[in-house]
Design a protein around this nucleic acid. Structure first.
Length: 406
DNA sequence: ACACCACTAAACAGGA
DNA sequence: TTCCTGTTTAGTGGTG
């Protein structure tokens, strides 16, 4: 799901890989981080020097990481920004909605929110005191939190109404007769779907399988997998194929998890023919985010927002936003299927299916070496990104602190 | 290639 | 009559 995840940033502009880079680049463009570029460079070097593996310290492949980091700094335009679950500034956060959408001056405010309409509606409703809102209030809440819609074509309201009508997660409640003003009904979230909605919300958009697919943990697990395959005389798939498989793995792994989720959490694993419109509830969100399906269900949206900038909750640890990714990584480590959970699949007719007696050509040491270098380069790249982010976070925190002291 | 999902657009009806 | 609300259908694009 590219999942991108999910409800998603403007899907038309997004490409799986570019998303992360673009998102990170956005951090550099947030204006308050003048030393961002400087922070990145020494860290990248540091990461390289930290490696104890001689293979990994071979500088022949280091340029790849440098190029990636350079691209990172240069960034790209108009793509989904930083994780909405991640608030680098920390302060003026309302209970809902990413900080980067709060300020219309920021370029990101003009980006499409990375939430589906069903999640936006859900957030709006849950944010209301009575957990019920008329359509108009839902519009207002969305507009307030996501200035993107202020300039978006009016069709989004139609989409909101369409979602309310079609999505079983939302229930229409007649207004009390005494109510003087306003027409139409109030809309509430069906409590049965709340856990699913919250789960969907938590998963969006940076804890996606695709994000996980790029995680160092996963990369290393792919490497391990490939080493095992090599030792067993199998020819591992090309690394790029392996990494693409990871994305598939995300969904392949999620399918049974989603089923478990439905069985255990959703009373709506139903035979209802309309169930295919419970997108936020059972199907997509669960599938797309199944790497988290094992997480305990939450009882309130506020709990979900533990993954969201803490400012409105009193906390201010800017690193929160990446917590989820680390969890995702951890899950891969715990994966009972093995290092990656990815069992190598037959890949086309040319892929050996383990037929007895069939000789499998072993890859040459040079091939393995090249692929290891490639993978290590990716690891370094990711480590560099993380380190850069850490640096940026501390810088932003320091500046924020200074700003407060003034 | 196919199915599924999210999204969008549009038409329509009913009520304020 | 106009606008808003709610429902429904159809089409498109992305993803697995």
């Amino acid at each position: 799901m590219g999942p991108v995840i999910g409800m998603t940033p403007d899907k038309r502009a997004e490409t799986p890989g570019a998303e992360k880079v673009a998102g990170l680049s956005q951090i550099y463009k947030m204006g308050s981080l003048p030393e961002a570029g400087d922070a990145a460079r020494p860290k990248a070097t540091l990461v390289g020097s930290e490696s104890a593996d001689d293979e990994l310290t071979n500088l022949n492949w280091l340029h790849e990481s440098s190029n990636l980091l350079t691209n990172l700094r240069l960034g790209s335009e108009g793509l989904p920004m930083v994780s909405p679950l991640y608030d680098i500034e920390g302060d003026e956060m309302p209970s809902f909605g990413p900080a980067c959408y709060q300020n219309p001056e920021k370029k990101s405010a003009t980006s499409k929110p990375p939430y589906s309409f069903s999640l936006l509606i859900y957030m709006a409703i849950e944010h209301s005191p009575n957990k019920c809102l008329p359509v108009k209030e839902i519009y207002s809440w969305i507009l307030d939190r996501f200035p993107y819609f202020a300039t978006a074509p009016t069709g989004w309201k139609n989409s909101v109404r369409h979602n309310l009508s079609l999505n079983k997660c939302f229930q229409k409640v007649e207004r009390s007769h005494g109510k003087v003003n306003g027409k139409g009904s109030l809309w509430c979230v069906d409590p049965e779907y709340k856990p699913n909605l919250m789960q969907a919300l938590k998963k969006q958009p940076f804890s996606s399988p695709q994000s996980a697919a790029l995680s160092p943990h996963y990369l290393s697990s792919v490497l391990k997998q490939r080493q095992v395959q090599t030792l067993q005389g199998e020819k591992p798939l090309p690394l790029k194929t392996s990494l693409q498989k990871k994305r598939s793995y995300g969904s392949a792994f999620s399918a049974p998890s989603a089923v478990r989720l439905q069985e255990s959490q959703s009373p709506t694993a139903s035979v209802d023919p309309k169930a295919d419109h419970n997108y936020s509830a059972n199907s997509v969100a669960a599938q797309r985010c199944a790497s988290r399906a094992s997480m305990s269900s939450l009882s309130s949206v506020d709990e979900v927002y533990e993954f969201i900038p803490k400012s409105s909750h009193g906390g201010s640890d800017g690193s929160e936003g990446f917590h989820s990714e680390e969890e995702t990584d951890a899950e891969y480590e715990e994966d009972p299927l093995g290092d990656s959970g990815y069992a190598p699949q037959p890949h086309g007719d040319s892929t050996p299916k383990g037929q007895p007696g069939q000789k499998i050509p072993k890859p040459s040491c040079q091939e393995i070496d090249e692929e290891l270098k490639e993978a290590a380069g990716s690891l370094l790249h990711l480590a560099g990104i993380r380190t850069c982010l850490g640096s940026l976070i501390s810088t932003a925190k320091a500046q924020s602190q200074k700003h407060r002291e003034k």
